[in-house]
Design a binder for these strands. Sequence first.
DNA 1: ATGCATTTGTTCGTATGTATG
DNA 2: GCATACATACGAACAAATGCA
Lengths: 84, 84
Amino acid sequence: MEITIDTHGEEPAYKQLADQLRAAITRGDYAPGDLLPSLKQLSGAHGIAIATVQHALQVLKDEGLIYGVSGRGTFVRRAARPPS
Amino acid sequence: MEITIDTHGEEPAYKQLADQLRAAITRGDYAPGDLLPSLKQLSGAHGIAIATVQHALQVLKDEGLIYGVSGRGTFVRRAARPPS
DNA sequence: ATGCATTTGTTCGTATGTATG
DNA sequence: GCATACATACGAACAAATGCA
């Protein structure tokens, strides 16, 4: 599935990205332990600033879905999809 | 009481500001419903960037201590000091 | 009511520090 | 040492909401 950011939409870009990344993780597009695209990749791929990407990722970090590791990247938590 | 930010300290500026504002609110320096100093005031008063002030305020918003209103300012929540 | 000033919200660009490999 | 990547910080800009004249 694809992540698309509508810069002219009503929802802020960071929220769109956070929502879509959350959906992708929940769907299993990114499995627990998986490495997410880098800030630079997300930034370049969707035409939004690194700070905005970081804002989106910060939301998911606060939710406990992902975590960042300096020098390595951003990963999906093992507890991202607790057994329903 | 005074808020002082040590730019050369080990703790990041946004965390220092968040901690000290949280303490001030908990202490009652800012009562529930009170208006906090504006971003510009906090920025100028402590010699830190507006973005850094917002980062600090975002922490307290996430904690549910304060909330912002466009065009008016940032307020202390009524539930800021739930009865222990 | 129209406009202006203030303030928050959001976004972008950039730079530096730190940690990893 | 070097490349990659996150964390922090600064500066700047525009939009939207609010209040007031």
